[in-house]
Amino acid sequence: MAHEHKLEIFRGLWKFKSNTQKIWGVLAFLCVVTAIEVVLGIMKPEILTDTYFLGMKLLNWIFIILTLVKAYYIAWDFMHLRDEKTALRRAIVWTPIFLVLYLVFILLFEADYVYNVYKDGFVTWNF
Rank of each mutant, 00 (worst) to 15 (best):
70 K>E: 14
59 L>Q: 11
65 I>M: 08
63 F>M: 12
83 D>W: 06
84 E>N: 05
63 F>N: 06
74 I>Q: 04
67 T>V: 04
59 L>E: 11
55 G>S: 09
69 V>K: 04
73 Y>A: 03
79 M>N: 05
41 G>F: 13
45 P>F: 08
81 L>D: 08
77 D>A: 06
59 L>Y: 06
73 Y>R: 06
80 H>C: 02
49 T>H: 03
48 L>Q: 11
66 L>T: 07
52 Y>A: 02
57 K>H: 07
48 L>D: 11
42 I>K: 09
42 I>S: 01
79 M>S: 04
80 H>K: 14
71 A>S: 06
76 W>R: 06
54 L>T: 05
48 L>G: 01
45 P>K: 13
62 I>Y: 04
51 T>V: 02
55 G>M: 12
83 D>H: 10
81 L>A: 03
78 F>P: 00
81 L>P: 00
59 L>V: 05
52 Y>F: 11
82 R>I: 08
78 F>Y: 14
48 L>P: 01
58 L>F: 11
75 A>S: 09
77 D>I: 14
63 F>E: 10
42 I>Q: 05
61 W>M: 08
55 G>P: 01
72 Y>L: 01
79 M>R: 09
70 K>Y: 01
47 I>A: 07
53 F>L: 15
52 Y>D: 13
63 F>R: 07
75 A>G: 05
47 I>G: 02
59 L>M: 06
69 V>S: 04
46 E>V: 05
71 A>G: 03
77 D>E: 15
53 F>S: 05
68 L>E: 15
56 M>S: 08
49 T>P: 01
62 I>N: 02
81 L>V: 05
69 V>A: 09
45 P>A: 08
59 L>H: 07
47 I>R: 10
83 D>Y: 10
80 H>D: 13
82 R>Y: 15
65 I>W: 09
81 L>F: 11
83 D>P: 00
59 L>D: 09
63 F>A: 03
81 L>G: 01
51 T>F: 07
72 Y>H: 10
